[in-house]
Simulated scan of single mutants.
Amino acid sequence: MPSWDIDPQEVGGVLSSTASHIGEEEGPDGLLGQMRSLEFDTTLTEAHINSTPVTIALECTSEATTHYMDGQYEMAEEAQNNAGTVPLPPPPPYTVDPTHRPV
């Protein structure tokens, strides 16, 4: 049966080094800090990504690529041209008073 030869100081050094790479639970450093930073940045940009112009551009680009891969070059060109066409947003809602004037 093999014997164990564990050096507590070396084990402690490895654990300390590993913990520093992982980082404190609420701290800005290490892997945990990087994950929090990435989560914050992703959440911050989500509003920009979920916009009508970006959605239209991505859908048309996907459609153009599919047509191109299928050899439908005219349809690919049309879809590519549509990627830059963004409709005007609907007018904002408004309240009408009893005299039918916008408020």
Rank of each mutant, 00 (worst) to 15 (best):
D29E: 15
N82C: 08
N81W: 06
V54C: 04
F40M: 10
T45W: 03
A79K: 08
F40N: 13
R36C: 04
T55V: 06
G27A: 11
G30D: 01
T61S: 14
M35R: 06
Q72R: 14
T42L: 08
S37C: 02
M35K: 04
T45V: 01
V54T: 10
A76K: 11
N82M: 11
D41C: 01
Y73P: 01
R36A: 10
Q80C: 06
Q72V: 00
T43I: 04
A64N: 10
N81S: 12
M35N: 09
D70A: 14
N50K: 09
P28S: 13
G30Q: 01
G71H: 11
E26D: 12
E77M: 12
L31D: 13
A57E: 12
A47W: 05
G27P: 04
M35C: 06
E77H: 10
S37P: 00
E46I: 01
N50I: 00
Y73E: 15
I56N: 13
E25S: 06
E59V: 04
G30C: 03
T61A: 14
G33S: 08
E63R: 14
G27C: 05
A76F: 04
H67L: 07
D41E: 12
T61G: 15
R36T: 07
T42A: 12
T65W: 10
A79S: 15
E46F: 02
T55K: 13
N81E: 15
T45K: 07
E74H: 07
T55H: 10
L38N: 11
S37Y: 06
D70N: 14
T52W: 05
M75Y: 11
L31F: 12
E39V: 02
G30N: 03
L38S: 12
Q34D: 09
L32D: 00
A76L: 05
Q34L: 05
D41G: 00
T66G: 07
E77N: 12
A79Q: 11
E46A: 08
L38A: 15
N50L: 05
C60W: 05
T66W: 06
E77C: 06
